[in-house]
């Protein structure tokens, strides 16, 4: 048995879910996220010997982010403009049609979709710090490492991202009840 491979599985693969989530938030497309994660894990495996310290998750997410940026550049070079991820028509109908779901469930779904959509609409540098802080629960130092900026920048981006998201969220919830029904 290759013990390098085994160490990799024990130390790195437990963070595969986080890598996938992060890739999803960065690329906003499941297919692209799959590609990014696969490429990132292979890169991580090749560079595994260079891993120092115990911050494996931050290290893996840094690689995921780099792979995402590379893939993005390649797509742009090919002048291929990805269609924005639509919240599928099927889903939209489900909301309008009265389903047997209790009211609260569909309201929660609306809420999820609202926040999901508002997050997706944020600039990438705001979205990524929010995801790393609020979803992945990383500290400033780790976020600074993943996004490759100083801690001070992490703090100001977080503040701006939170303020922007909150403002849009409030607008949305003030408008929503009338718009939906």
């Amino acid at each position: 048995m290759d013990d390098r491979r085994q160490r990799f599985e024990v130390l790195v693969l437990p963070h595969l879910d986080a890598a996938y989530r992060f890739a999803r938030w960065l690329s906003r497309s499941p297919g692209d996220a799959d590609d990014v994660v696969q490429e990132a894990v292979l890169r991580a495996f090749r560079g595994f010997d260079a891993l120092r310290g115990s911050d494996v998750k931050a290290w893996l997410l840094t690689i995921v982010r780099n792979c995402h940026l590379t893939a993005l550049k390649q797509r742009q070079r090919r002048a291929f403009v990805p269609l924005p991820e639509e919240h599928d028509a099927a889903d939209g109908h489900a909301v309008i049609a009265t389903t047997p779901d209790p009211e609260s469930v569909s309201m929660l779904r609306d809420e999820q979709r609202t926040l999901d959509r508002l997050m997706s609409a944020l600039p990438e540098e705001h979205r990524e710090v929010l995801v790393l802080r609020e979803i992945e629960e990383m500290d400033y130092r780790e976020i600074a490492a993943v996004t490759n900026v100083p801690i001070g920048t992490v703090m100001s981006r977080l503040a701006r991202a939170r303020a922007a998201l909150k403002a849009r969220w409030q607008q949305e919830s003030a408008r929503e009840p009338h718009a939906v029904r």
């Binding site: 879910d17 890598a19 996938y20 994660v37 999820q112 926040l115 999901d116 997050m119 979803i135």
Partner: peptide, 15 residues
């Protein structure tokens, strides 16, 4: 905001 994000955003796992 934190409560809403943690409760309401989908917490996905790798397929």
């Amino acid at each position: 905001l934190r409560t809403a994000l943690r409760q309401e955003l989908p917490y996905e796992t790798a397929p």
